[in-house]
């Protein structure tokens, strides 16, 4: 008996076959005694597991202990006191933001200089005079995510000379 038929029988028992596929399989079962036997066997197995159910397990620790670990992690609902703090933080940010515009202009100039490779050439000049130690290449990779819920892990094996970025969408 081929694997496809066996899996089709299982899908039929699980109620996952389309109406058309179901009719085709029923016709096959009428003719094929071996397939019919397998169908009965699978049905018995499936029913048995559901009937018996699972072993019951309970939390091995006290609820208070279990809950504490959770409550330490979850964000409490913002209290009026927290809201006051947020407002204070916003005022402080406004004061600091006055410096952002000139800071941004300086950063843009610095960026343009970097992009043109001026700094690289200056530093290469230093290298040629034997003072390269100051220049350090980016030590590791940067990762941008384009998808929500997308995570990544990065890892570097020095012994193998392998850098890994593991991406996951789970």
């Amino acid at each position: 008996m081929n694997e496809k038929l066996v899996i089709q029988i299982q899908a039929y028992l699980d109620g996952e076959l389309s109406a058309e596929a179901r009719l085709q399989l029923l016709a096959r079962l009428e003719k094929d005694s071996e397939a019919r036997e397998l169908c009965d066997s699978l049905k018995a197995e499936q029913g048995f597991l559901k009937d018996v159910g699972e072993n019951s397990h309970e939390l091995p620790v006290a609820h208070s202990y279990f809950w504490k670990a959770i409550s330490d992690e979850i964000q409490p609902h913002p209290s009026p006191r927290n809201e006051t703090r947020h407002k204070e933080a916003a005022v402080a940010f406004q004061r600091w933001s006055a410096w952002l515009v000139p800071g941004g202009v300086i950063a843009c100039i610095a960026l343009v200089v970097f992009q043109k490779g001026v700094l690289d050439d200056v530093l290469d000049g230093i290298k040629s005079t034997g003072k390269k130690a100051a220049r350090v290449a980016p030590s590791f990779h940067e990762i941008d995510s384009q998808q929500q819920n997308a995570g990544f892990i990065s890892f570097r094996s020095e012994s193998e000379g392998v850098s890994v970025v593991w991406i996951s969408n789970y």
Binding site: A137, H141, D144, Q146, V162, V164, V165, Y170
Partner: peptide
Amino acid sequence: VIGEDQLQRTVKHPLKPILNDGDLFVVGGD
């Protein structure tokens, strides 16, 4: 990295270790 016509991830990595040291740069997933 583009998977099934969708941009999955943009990764930046220093080039020198790959070219000069024979390092491997690996992007992986399930």
